[in-house]
Amino acid sequence: MALLSRLAFGPEELEEMKASMNSILTYMDELNQYDTEKVEPMVHAVEQYNVMRDDVPHTSFTNEEALLNAPEKENGYFKVPKII
């Protein structure tokens, strides 16, 4: 789980996370008792459909604006650490 979420935990934190995850799973078990066979899955919390826009271009960021939050940059690119 930690690997999937790319998070690092200390031994104490791990214990804490374990307890908290377990309580979530127990709660899920409780939900599993109910028969949901005839319940339509809810795909969205808001009862709204078909919000779309026209295919018309608007101004984008300038390169400087795009890179304002970048911790590291080079030649107009975002610079990221070695990946594999």
């Binding site: 026209d54 295919d55 300038t62 390169n63 795009a66 890179l67 690119y77």
Partner: peptide, 23 residues
């Protein structure tokens, strides 16, 4: 040019709202 056709939505900045292109 690199990173010139970008905006808060496609850069994934917090608080943005994507909207589907009809086309």
């Amino acid at each position: 040019e690199p990173n010139t056709n970008v905006c808060p939505v496609c850069l994934g900045l917090p608080g943005v709202l994507p909207v589907l292109n009809k086309k």
